[in-house]
Design a binder for these strands. Structure first.
Lengths: 337, 337
DNA sequence: ATGAAAGCGCTAACAT
DNA sequence: ATGTTAGCGCTTTCAT
């Protein structure tokens, strides 16, 4: 475990002052061609690598972002992560990632760590509607861009999709196919994506005069929950002719429940969902969905954050709202009878 | 952008020396109950958060790991990533992640950045068989655990699956179903997982006296490549009765090519693959595969790395080789005729 | 175009 | 149980 060379070692070897080495490395300030060459040789000979901890301590920037999602394992967030990393690395930034599992406690704990690590900015999929972690980061001068979900009473940048509109269009499509008894299988209340998608469902139903048929089953954004709630929905009387899963895991849980119940889709029942699965993972996608441009969301969010880091005076409170794309596939069809 | 309080501010407020504050924060050394209380109050009042850059500079540890994969978007690596993060965060470490897209250049570039950032250790899925980045990290005293792939002529820890054995068992299964003309659609030569899986295929074939029927089409680990090579395989005369895709993306590309060619699986042709898709993502998995315990690999690799960080004298060169699980599903059946 | 001195925020080593 | 001093490796400021 030999000591690594530092900027002073390089300076000595090159016969210059440390600050000169610094100027050469960071291409800041002047340096004659001859000096630059001497320094670069010394660096190569010693195998010197700049210590960015020391640098960060001094200049108060780390070129590090953090991405906090609920679960990187959800392909929607995986794609966001990839978009974030691509945009960040292109700009010379590195990304720390964190999974909160929808737990506010973990989110707060990570916020603390990220302040300690002096990250330059945070991309956050908020686990809940509490503003605590966003505020905490703000108090420590760390800008935050929210992804996917809003948080009430907080002003930060947000990059998300129009969940209300997406759900509305999706449900409207199914209503136009003739369905009147549509049950929504939703994530938790209080999470904006859940609430917005339920709201879109309600608007479409009411608009079609189906306000009396509203039925929302709340749970969590998991496959297991989709499975259970679908079974619950099937036990209803009258039995719904269509089910709406408000995220990808829920939809897959629903599909599995239907399969296990021996029901064919869409012959026996129609299923629609939010979020598409990446085409790289599915041979024959059958689900009719409102698809979100996840990769693009990641890129845009990272770029917005980086812009806020470089330009001091962006207008406050940018909210980028992207449309969802309705993709009609085989899982939706006219109701039985 | 007000100045954040530092340890000196806290010390003054609590009426103690900075080092005492340090001892309280890090629970190192003694501190009387009264002092501890004063310090904690001062911290709360000022909203002090420790600066881990300064700390890291001093103690020469950052509590940061890096995970370098080829593409986080591949669910196999996503699961690894999740395993790594779970194990790391449990131990108080944070994870930086990087995508190399199978490019050696990107891998080397990231190695440089990670040394600059003074990460404590690196988990690496090597993009190629060149030892350069592992060596570079080693020279800078950063331990590396390789995941998924071996690199020749390098001694580090490795956590991977037995690709040769997995492929052997998979191909053997298909041979026992009666297939004699099996074509392997492989990733690039020189990547250990590719080479090992091809080797397993070859062993099974030769053992069954099918040494003359060996046929391997090489490409890259992408869906597009699986698609193209499958079409190439279908054009062969005689046409193979079974195709073996050596990773998940290849297999899905193969399945799509078969679908587009109007061929039914397994009635018209059998398909086997390496890597399973997470059950959270697929309603009806049909592919017969050799499944790797990706999440577990991530956990084990991170734990091994952390162990190496804490205990100086682990035996050199740990190589953890996990078995794959053969999962027989509908994509494999007896050959036509 | 280059350098000297000071300090970013923290803790190891050595007092007391 | 607590404090003093020095220094981790770098860059800002102010010279020359």
């Amino acid at each position: 475990m030999k000591k690594m060379p530092n900027i002073i070692d390089v300076a000595k070897r090159a016969g210059v002052a440390p600050i000169t080495v610094s100027r050469v490395i960071n291409k800041s300030g002047y340096a004659s061609e001859a000096t630059r060459k001497k320094v670069e040789e010394a660096i190569a000979e010693l195998g010197y690598v700049q210590n960015s901890l020391a640098r960060g301590l001094r200049i108060k920037r780390t070129n590090t972002l953090a991405l906090v999602v609920t679960d990187i394992t959800n392909p929607f967030f995986t794609l966001i992560a990839r978009g974030v990393e691509d945009a960040a690395s292109k700009a010379g930034y590195t990304v720390i990632y964190c999974n909160t599992d929808e737990s506010e406690e973990k989110e707060i704990s990570y916020s603390n760590i990220l302040v300690q690590k002096q990250v330059d900015g945070v991309l956050l999929v908020p686990a809940c509607s509490s503003p605590q972690s966003v505020r905490f980061l703000g108090q420590n001068n760390i800008p935050v861009v929210l992804i996917d979900r809003r948080v009430p009473d907080i002003h930060t940048d947000v990059v998300r999709c129009d969940s209300e509109e997406g759900a509305y269009n999706l449900v409207k499509l199914v209503i136009e196919l003739g369905h009147r008894n549509i049950v929504t299988i939703s994530g938790p209340q209080g999470v904006s994506t859940s609430d917005d998608r339920v709201a879109g469902y309600q608007r479409a139903m009411k608009e079609a005069g189906l306000g009396d048929n509203l039925n929302v089953l709340y749970g969590s954004f998991t496959q297991a929950c989709g499975y259970d709630l679908a079974n619950q929905a099937l036990a209803l009387n009258p039995r719904p002719t269509a089910l709406f899963g408000t995220n990808n895991f829920l939809s897959i849980g629903i599909m599995k429940a239907l399969r296990d119940a021996g029901m064919r889709v869409p012959e026996d029942i129609t299923v629609i969902g939010f979020d598409d699965l990446p085409e790289t993972m599915v041979v024959d996608p059958i689900l009719t969905v409102a698809a979100q441009p996840a990769y693009k969301m990641g890129v845009l969010a990272a770029e917005l954050l980086l812009k806020r880091l470089s330009e001091k005076m962006l207008p406050e409170n940018q909210e980028i709202i992207l449309p969802t794309e309705i993709i009609e596939r085989q899982s939706s069809g006219p109701p039985l009878g």
